[in-house]
Design a protein around this nucleic acid. Structure first.
Lengths: 183, 183
DNA sequence: AAAATAATTTGATAAATATCAAAATACTAT
DNA sequence: ATAGTATTTTGATATTTATCAAATTATTTT
């Protein structure tokens, strides 16, 4: 139950709610959020770390920036499940996710592509997070970057598009927005 | 948004969560809850009032006791609705409920039985709340009590049973438990 | 390697609030 | 009415925490 309280405390703050609203629109990073809300980067960071700790947001680095994003599955659950089913479900999923990542990534490189759909999705999402949100990647550049993760970059690219993590237009790629309305 | 924060702050406290767990099991009253949680009645009252204010619980008096109960519909909603649909839905429902009650009760007495099903349910629930939870009522006593609300106590009694607020066994009646598993 | 930039951490402070004991209210039963 | 019982309010206190400015750390680019 302690975990549930921590989770709820995270939500029960005007600044953090505002941050979540921003992240619900699109992934973002500390300084940008700080500017939008007229808060110090330090303060925003404090909030984000707190929420990351509670499993509400995740982050991944791209270029200079640490891109934060919502853990969207969380928000589809009914309140009763979060309050009374006491952590278990949520917690178990986070643990599972980490286990999958640990077993397929070694030093940031993929050892194989999971065949189970659920596992594959988790792994692909992780790879996708390494790409910047607004940016457009030429196919050549993309291939090069994917090669850092996995030798068979063609399969990897195809799957990323197939699972909806990347969008393709002619020879150019970009990260797909995680649109909540399309869930 | 201010209302959302208040609502979440209500949930984000160990003592209040514990109270909600108790109320999820069955309706209860201040002293009993205080005993179970090893808190002062004053403290428990403070929490309950706070939650009542936020629309999380409701209360009604019976005999010595003020019986508190969960506002169960609230907990079926997905978190996203509570956070991002920003109060509107919840708030609007509370306002609506109050409006219905105001228009059909005058000095605690029913002026008429609403014909709209939704309104009727709200009104009947309110009447049902005036009966104690564990107690058994003989038909005669029940009729007498219903007469305080409405002249046509027969219809009222029939509807209370029909909507599932009262349970009948031979000539005896009791309040039906609000079982969440039967929702 | 050095310079640039963003993120995080730290130390301090002011505001919010959970809790209790005790007093005040509200209601019931005799 | 009076006594009995439960609830609510009040005043005080200790804890928690959101926030900032400034210092530090982590990455990237040149």
């Amino acid at each position: 139950m302690e975990h549930t309280v921590q989770f709820l405390k995270c939500l029960a703050d005007p600044s953090r709610l505002a941050i979540l609203h921003i992240l619900a629109e699109r992934d973002s990073y500390v300084e940008l959020i700080a500017a939008k809300l007229d808060l110090t980067p330090g303060t925003v960071c404090y909030h984000l770390k707190k929420m990351e700790h509670a499993g509400i947001v995740r982050c991944s680095r791209t270029q200079f920036y640490v891109i934060y994003s919502l853990n969207r599955e969380l928000f589809d659950r009914p309140l009763s499940e979060l309050l009374f089913a006491s952590d278990q479900t949520v917690e178990r999923e986070n643990v599972y996710r980490q286990k999958v990542l640990d077993s397929f990534f070694v030093n940031g490189r993929l050892t194989a592509l999971p065949s189970q759909r659920k596992k594959r999705e988790i792994v692909l999402e992780k790879v996708a997070e390494s790409f910047a949100m607004g940016r457009v990647y030429e196919e050549k550049e993309l291939n090069h970057l994917l090669l850092d993760f996995y030798d068979d970059y063609c399969t990897l690219r195809r799957e990323l598009v197939g699972f909806g993590f990347l969008e393709r237009e002619q020879e150019r790629y970009r990260r797909a927005p995680k649109d909540p309305s399309e869930k």
